[in-house]
Structures are given as structure tokens and as C-alpha cells.
Computed example of a mutant assay.
Amino acid sequence: MTKLKFSFVILCVLCAFVVQTSSAQNNTVPKPLFDDPVYHGAADPVIIYNKAKKKWWMLYTNRRASIEDSTVQWVHGTRIGIAESNDGVQWKYVDTANVNYRPDAGYTHWAPDVIEHKGTYHMYLTYVPGTFKDWNHPRVIVHLTSKNLKDWNYQSTLKLVNEKVIDASVYKINDTTFRMWYNNEKDGKSIYYADSKDLYNWVDKGKAIAARGEGPKTFYWQGKYFMIVDAWKGMEVYSSDDLLKWTKQPNRILENPGKRKDDQAIGGHCDVIINNGKAYVYYFTHPGRSKANPAPRGSFDDKRSVIQLAELKYVNGEVVCDRNEPVIIQLKK
């Protein structure tokens, strides 16, 4: 090979490396991943592919962090926010979901979970009948359907263990069996579950996990089922072979503070996406609630929340998560 040809080959290799490096950098997830531009209170995300738009959509609890309030009114009176992304890296605000279930003045919508089945999107939404200053009010889970992920039609209010339930999470076992986990606030905030054959009619089955926690998220990965539960001190991780008997792993994830922007506080109520064999956890943080430098209680910085993203790894039989590690992602439909 002549020196000229050899130099040309080296140049081509270097160009390819630069292109790949640039592409990887372009797909590196920012910190924070998303900050709601209206109220700056994004939380409880769920990620789903919008087939019509050919984009990924994030639906989230849109808590009103920017309003003046010293009670808990700011987490009430909320609408479900929507953001979208082509690849899971850059997200932009779209609107709020048009949920046509509003029987009470000052209605509150919390913690959506969305599943697509046979061309219809199904949302299971926590509904609170008003905007309240305390926690002493009913909370139920309602079923809504949509063809476009933006406009939602009410189907029913689920008959579960009581009317103090929140945070539904639905998993499709097969075409005729679906399982929902949710938080029963009257039973020490433990996790209960219900089964359905069609996503419309649900049969409550009782307690699934006898431990405090909320925002359960179930997924299949590494040959077994996992459930991540928000324990308010990081996330508990459970595993199962049959979706009935759950074993808690010794260590929590997203408990220790991160070092990158707005990620110094514990991670909360998450969604997990399995894509290209990798597992990604979408969670929220209150940046102003870091132990090292907490914001004044009730201030905007104390209430503000953002969405973050990290990759899960499976190491020595445990799910682990390094929130400081850069995440390179390009979600495929």
C-alpha cells in the first residue's frame, strides 16, 4: 500500500470515529431531562410511543410548584402534562391532556399510567375531587381511553379495595390477562393488586407487598420480573418469577445524591423503558431538597421538581443505577 493510500485510509477511519463520537454526544441525555415550563413541577412520568405522531410522549403529573402556597394545595388542582421527543433525548412541552372526567370543581389529576392494546390507549389515572389544603380526602383510580394520547374519554371508576387509592401501574401478562398494582393508603400505604381480562373489568386481589411505598412500576428484564417502588428514601427494588411472590433486594437505587445538575436529591416515582435490551429509568427529583443544601420549606425551590433519566444495570443479581454516569440513548419505536 502506498503512503498516499495509507494516509487516505487513516483519514477515513478518523472521520468515522469523529462522526460516531459526535453522534454519541448528540444522544447523551441532558441533566435535567425535562423541566415543565408552566409550573416547574413535573413528576410521576410515564413514557409511551405515539404511533400517529411517530414520537415518544411523556405524560406526567404537572404539580403547580410556582404558585404561592404553604399547604399542599400546590400538588392539587393539577392537569396531566405532555412532552414529546423523537429519540428520548431532547423533550419539549406539548400541552396538557384533555381528560373529560371533571365532575368536581377544582378537580385534581395525578400519576397517569398508560398502556396500548389493539390500537387503543388506556390510561389509569388517580382522581381527587377538588383542590385541597390537606391529604384527608378521597382518591380513586379512573379508567380512560384514547386514540391519540391527548383526548381522553372516561370509561369507569375502578372498584378497588377502598376510595383512598393512588398510583396505578398496569402490566400486560398476555392478550387476555392484565395486572394492576396500586397504593392502598388506608393500609399503611402498602401495594395492592387487581386483575382484568379486558382492561375494563377489574377484580381486586388484595395485598401484593406488605411494605410502605407508592408509585409501583413493573417490568420484565434479565429473565425475570421486577417492581420498583418509591419508598421516599430512594427506590426499593423487588423481583419475582411469577408476578405474585416478590423478593426485595438489599439495596435501594436512586437514594444517594447525584453530582450532576438538579440531581442531588432522592429519586421518586418512576417509569422504566426496556429498549434495545437496555433498561432506562425515568424518575423525578426535587432539586431544592438535597440534604447538603436544602431550600427553605415551602419555597419555590423546595417545591420545584424535574424529570431525570438514568440507565439501570444488572450486577451480581441486583438492579443498580449510577445516576452520575452519562446516558446515551436513542429510543426505537
Rank of each mutant, 00 (worst) to 15 (best):
L125Q: 06
L125E: 00
T126D: 09
Y127K: 14
Y127D: 12
Y127A: 15
Y127C: 11
V128G: 08
P129F: 07
G130D: 12
G130R: 10
F132N: 15
F132K: 13
K133F: 01
K133Q: 09
D134N: 15
N136H: 14
V140C: 14
V140Y: 14
V140G: 10
I141R: 02
I141G: 04
I141F: 05
H143C: 00
L144A: 03
L144W: 01
T145M: 05
S146G: 01
N148Y: 04
L149R: 02
K150L: 12
K150H: 10
K150M: 06
W152Q: 03
N153Q: 14
N153T: 15
Y154A: 04
Y154I: 04
Q155P: 02
S156M: 04
T157C: 09
T157I: 09
T157G: 07
L158F: 08
L158Q: 06
L158T: 05
L158V: 08
K159M: 03
K159P: 04
V161H: 02
N162C: 01
K164P: 01
K164E: 12
V165C: 11
D167C: 05
A168G: 14
A168K: 07
A168I: 07
S169K: 01
S169W: 03
K172W: 07
I173R: 14
I173H: 12
I173L: 14
D175C: 03
T176P: 07
T176Q: 12
T177S: 12
F178N: 00
F178Y: 10
R179C: 09
R179M: 14
M180E: 03
M180S: 06
Y182R: 05
Y182M: 04
N183C: 15
N184H: 15
K186D: 15
K186C: 13
D187G: 07
D187S: 12
D187V: 09
S190Y: 02
Y193E: 07
A194R: 04
D195R: 01
D195G: 08
D195I: 06
S196T: 05
S196W: 00
K197H: 13
K197P: 01
L199D: 03
L199M: 08
Y200W: 06
W202G: 02
K205W: 05
G206H: 13
G206Q: 11
K207V: 09
K207D: 00
A208D: 00
A208N: 06
A208T: 04
I209V: 13
R212H: 11
R212T: 12
G213I: 06
E214D: 12
E214T: 07
G215I: 03
P216K: 02
P216V: 01
P216M: 00
F219R: 04
F219G: 06
W221A: 08
W221R: 09
Q222A: 14
G223Q: 11
K224C: 08
K224N: 09
Y225R: 08
Y225N: 03
F226H: 04
M227L: 06
I228V: 14
I228A: 04
D230I: 10
W232Y: 14
K233I: 07
G234C: 13
M235K: 13
V237N: 10
S239F: 06
D241R: 07
D241S: 11
L243F: 09
K245M: 05
K245E: 13
W246T: 08
W246A: 09
W246L: 10
T247V: 15
T247Y: 14
T247W: 12
K248M: 13
Q249R: 10
P250N: 13
P250G: 13
